[in-house]
Design a binder for these strands. Structure first.
Lengths: 130, 130, 130, 130
DNA sequence: GTGGTCTAGACCACT
DNA sequence: GTGGTCTAGACCACA
């Protein structure tokens, strides 16, 4: 698994790892049911403390992305589905609200913005052909 | 100016204020050149420490949203424009990248997502008619 | 013997097996004196390491649920009775204490809770008629 | 806040703290909206590391018992309600299932068991008179 | 070897 | 002073 961490970023390391793992799942690089590296393995690969990875895995578990299998370690949740909760949609709306506001003021037209969104979304749809 | 702060939110208070001020500008509730409440006034209204508001205004100035006017205090930058820097676009892309990944996995279709984006963007275009 | 193990559960596998064996006895599916599968047999059935099953049988023996018979292997304790020790009651009380606290706060009324308890207890009383 | 931790217990310290805080809320010793001790304060009181308390508070937040208020620190969730989810009921049923099985086999009659449950539940109902 | 728990100490962001 | 992040190292339960 390729994870690129920016140690100088404002975004906490554990958050970057979470984001990238979710992205890897969306891209199909991590298949449902596939097992992730062990906490200590991934920590060693990235060059960070295993507690940080542990935190990531626990949060991913809490949010339903992975399950901790007593035989296989941590695996991508095989039943990943139906998470389009109202709570999530609300959060998403708020994020888009401020994001579009700033984009609008910065002169990104609606068309440009929509194109960016479409381009980003489509990479996940097209994963099968990648 | 209506600012709704959620003290239980994950988002820092200063960030919430920044977001809402930018949104107010995008909505046209705050006109270019219009003056914002004084640091102490806004702090009192929200019920927070004035240092927090100070931080907000400084960052808004740093990013070009407002200017500190010797007489009038803090006003919305009258020359607000052309901030579509490549740095901003890069940041925006990264944000959309992870956001669309999660939306895709949670079952938000491309159409639904695009509709959400359009709806949010359009509220700023339509401000003149509001 | 039907044992359903959830490998993704928080509960250790050995604990799940223990729970289910005790439940099978309470339900009368396992009669007093009846013999349990061999360690290796049960391990193979479930698809786990036989050390885990070994641990289960040893603990069950320790707690008096089964006896290790020289000839017949492991059998349900034919003299199963009188285990209502004060130590057990204390443990049970502590468990009920926190369990009822959470149920109360989550809005499960006393009547609902009592009904749940009754329903669960009664399945063991009615075993003879099952 | 009185918390009695058994350091020799099988139950992890953080779990004991969680249980007792939930119990304190149910007993009304901790009112809705009331603030809890800071992580470092509580850790010092109990004589443990603050990370352990931090873990507790984060889990309580995840489960909706408390909210982390940016001004007041950690407070009991003022909107504590409606948590009688099906997921919780399922978990509760499974717990009662094995608990009643063992009680039945140990000779605790249905009446005795129900009386224990009632006694435990009622302490939370009667909190207003305590 | 796996994840889980706990300790200890440092630094940071926020208010 | 508050919680959040990260590091580091020890020990344990589980399989």
């Amino acid at each position: 698994m390729f994870l690129e961490i920016e140690f100088e970023s404002e975004i906490p390391i554990y958050q970057q790892i979470k984001n990238q793992i979710i992205r890897e799942i969306a891209l199909g690089h991590l298949k449902l049911g596939q097992d992730l590296p062990s906490v200590r393995q991934l920590a060693a690969d990235i060059g960070i403390n295993f507690h940080t990875v542990n935190k990531v895995y626990n949060q991913l578990k809490q949010e339903g992305w992975v399950v901790i299998h007593r035989k296989s370690g941590v695996i991508v949740n095989p039943d990943l589905n139906a998470q389009k909760t109202t709570a999530y949609i609300t959060t998403l709306e708020e994020l888009l609200n401020i994001t579009t506001a700033e984009a609008y003021l910065r002169g990104v037209t609606k068309e440009e913005f929509m194109a960016l969104v479409a381009k980003n979304y489509e990479q996940y749809i097209l994963k099968g052909e990648g």
